[in-house]
Nucleic acid binder design. Sequence first.
DNA 1: CAGGCACGTTGCATGTTACGCACTTTGAGC
DNA 2: GCTCAAAGTGCGTAACATGCAACGTGCCTG
Lengths: 246, 246
Amino acid sequence: MSQTLDRALQVLEFVGERPRRIGDIATRLDVHHSTALRFLHTLRKHGFVQELPDHSYRLGPTMFRLGYQALEGIELRSVARPAMERLRELTGETVHLGSLEDGSVLYVEKVEANHPVRMHSRIGAVARLHCTGVAKGIVAFLPQADRDELLDGYELVRMTDHTIVDRVAFEEELALSRERGYALDAEENEPGIHCISAPVFSGEGRVVGAFSVTAPTSRVDRQTLLGFAPALVEATRDTSRQLGWQ
Amino acid sequence: MSQTLDRALQVLEFVGERPRRIGDIATRLDVHHSTALRFLHTLRKHGFVQELPDHSYRLGPTMFRLGYQALEGIELRSVARPAMERLRELTGETVHLGSLEDGSVLYVEKVEANHPVRMHSRIGAVARLHCTGVAKGIVAFLPQADRDELLDGYELVRMTDHTIVDRVAFEEELALSRERGYALDAEENEPGIHCISAPVFSGEGRVVGAFSVTAPTSRVDRQTLLGFAPALVEATRDTSRQLGWQ
DNA sequence: CAGGCACGTTGCATGTTACGCACTTTGAGC
DNA sequence: GCTCAAAGTGCGTAACATGCAACGTGCCTG
């Protein structure tokens, strides 16, 4: 392991939260300010950070580019897109694709609803494992050992009045999801937004992603949302088969 | 400057192109494989890379998250969104927002057309300075010195039969854009796709971004596209005024 | 306007740690 | 089972990352 690199990566994460001054970074790393400066200068040379007029630093163009390249490297996106578009046409609602990426679930693709009120783009964002549709649609279908490892030390944080924060209740919810073949986010992550989601499997039979159909409760009641389940499950199966699943 | 960090950042860029093996990375950096291994292990510990089953490495969840955070840190996106949506309603076509980020122009927001044939998502991507609407809409309105610096050593690469690759002709095109108040990408970046774009100015009178209206030539002819210019210019002015421009 | 202060920047000496080497382990293919 | 390529480990040393001291810059206040 490399101590210097360890420190530099901490700088990137710290600067990613909001713009930071050299002194803030030196304090955070517990190093001399000239050391912090050298990190920032090297990071800036490669475009990982950029300096603002007030001498604070925020993430720079290389971070954008690599974030984009990271997404472009996910083949599941292009494989899934046709089925996602068909699902959007059938439901009229926004369809998200979540992908399991080394211990995180990420939103990696979105096909938007044709309605004036749309979902804010969140491609690239991490999905909370316990209260978002796509994450539950993946976690529920992982092998027990993988699920235990993923949830080890994971804290179930209350996001709304409906969030499931009890570990036992959460495990029961996941078991129910497996029985049904799809998962439900019943306003657990965001008030007024609910969704259902189903897993996508690879040729080796491992869950690698999930589709969700997301809508505001003001427009789509729960019964209608649940009525989308057969189309959702069919779309994910189509995609799974394209990945070699059977 | 830090040599260790310099090398590690080269690893991230190299791995961002496509998955890489330890030996490939060692060769690329001209270091011993055990050195490359140590870099990868430190990067993996922080989630900047992830290891695939075949022992190659690609970018990991932290890169996604930081890419997302980088985008979320751009305030222009939220300021611009209402005007972009109005412009989309007026034109019926996809509206992109480009932002000038430390020597690069990036696509940072998109409001999609209501048509079955849509543009593939490219938020986070770098826009080519010489042949994309949003980039031309920014470059044309930079002060001369800034423009010269941005274009210093920049190579005008032919993307289509229409791409302007002659520096003198390109400068004339930019001058024409300034006269008109908007720029045009006439199938210069991608065959069958054209767009117009106009700049957004900050309170200090500096160009900080641009809106573009993008459409396939099969659906929107050039005359119709140019007919969108007044609405486009009005939308960018609205946004500029919100940023304090006058 | 001048002085003080906070912060950014530069150059140097040193000791910490990054590095290459030699060796071992692992996994895939035959 | 054997072979080979690649990943992984531990060690000694010198290269380079680090903190320090000093300097430069810009802003604020009296």
